[in-house]
Design a protein around this nucleic acid. Structure first.
Lengths: 225, 225
DNA sequence: CGAAAAAAATTGTTCAACAATATCGCATGG
DNA sequence: CCATGCGATATTGTTGAACAATTTTTTTCG
């Protein structure tokens, strides 16, 4: 066969390494539901399908395994991670531990406040379409921005992984509007408190938010059996 | 004193993957000072030296990069990470955020308390030899055990990385006895408070400990110029 | 029908090669 | 003499094939 067209379906910028670009594609397929949790990813088959070598695919696997959305079993292969109730509990515990103090000690003039603002606006817009997956993404961005308030590279990176895992769990659940819609005004309220110079109150509201959201997610998860 | 990696003749630890085994060896070389921060690690040269293929070495690099003790620059290579004052500040901030609440809400009968106990005992023993690097390891184990009190897989794994990075910074510093020795009785005291059912007091002491330790590390770091 | 043995498939690791990118040395010109 | 551009060199990025080690499937025999 002749050389395949050098321009793939969506031209990934060369700033990303090939493995990173493929990883982004696979990540979308996982959070988008094309690849279902528990599914096995055969190296040979996937490498051929993605038109990359097995070695490069293995690098992709390592990237995504580190993010927690794939799981690697020695000599057995790589699988799409299966969110469990335990993992959701753990994720929300970590979120509370990190997000609440981050917000409580925030300076209202921090650059990340703008990110929070934009995330709220975008969620409102996407709600109208409605694009609930987009709303979910904007919501995640809002909380990532909260963690960015800390200016801690390690916390920010860690939280990015946590968010990726949570998205995987969300992908399993139905009725996303019930999961995301009620929280748009809440986020706006939290942001308002912070901008008016009362981060303590904002942090209290965030704690409530997280508890309520956790309950909703666990209920939706339990409905799946 | 020269840790000879020269005799890998039969280090076929079937439990560990080849890459993981090599990674452990490299990790020791980094924390042990054989490989100095900032040093470039040539793929071809190191692969030959370790008697593994470049592909496997690249996997090792990815493992250690994830742990934060190596740094990867695209198309330029892999380097031993260089601890900065900023990274030390960030690490201690994360430590306070995670360790103090972990201890505060601990149940004195938790299995990890035994780990804390053993770590304290081992530190006392190694102090007599004296083996200050060993004391440092025991100290790290003590704090890893504190995080284990949370039963949170994600926090535990995250903290493992943080600890690895901190060890890298310690490797740069001289006079390890000044860095570790004063904290042996402190750890014992913290453990005592916890075992006597006063986790709140233990947490307060831990917070003091971390602030003081941070100051000592930063001072030692500043002395290096 | 069940269990052991053989066969097939998959992952783990290595090797050799080439392309893409960065680094170095050197000649040239001001 | 020094700066600069350019080609030569070295290094990383990626590929494909090969073989060993391990798991999974199939076959065979009791």
């Amino acid at each position: 066969m002749t050389k395949e067209p050098a321009a793939p379906a969506d031209s990934r910028d060369s700033s990303l390494s090939l493995a990173e670009g493929i990883a982004a594609r696979l990540r979308d397929q996982v959070t988008g539901g094309t690849l279902v949790p528990g599914q096995r990813l055969s190296e040979a088959r996937l490498a051929a399908e993605l038109e990359i070598s097995r070695n490069t695919l293995r690098e992709v696997f390592r990237l995504l395994t580190r993010e927690g959305i794939l799981r690697h079993e020695p000599n057995r292969g790589v699988f799409v991670a299966v969110p469990s109730m335990a993992s959701i509990l753990d994720i929300y515990r970590v979120r509370r531990l990190i997000e609440v103090p981050a917000l409580a000690q925030a300076w209202p003039g921090h650059a990340a406040v703008t990110r929070m603002h934009n995330a709220v606006e975008q969620a409102k817009e996407l709600q109208k379409i409605p694009d609930w997956r987009g709303v979910g993404s904007a919501n995640m961005e809002f909380h990532a921005a909260i963690v960015a308030l800390t200016d801690s590279p390690r916390l920010i990176q860690f939280f990015t992984q946590i968010i990726a895992e949570l998205r995987l769990a969300f992908g399993l659940l139905d009725s996303p509007e019930l999961l995301h819609q009620p929280y748009i005004p809440r986020n706006a309220e939290i942001l308002g408190k912070l901008e008016r110079g009362d981060p303590a109150a904002a942090a209290r509201m965030l704690d409530d938010y997280l508890n309520q959201s956790e309950r909703a997610v666990l209920e939706a998860f339990a409905r799946l059996g």
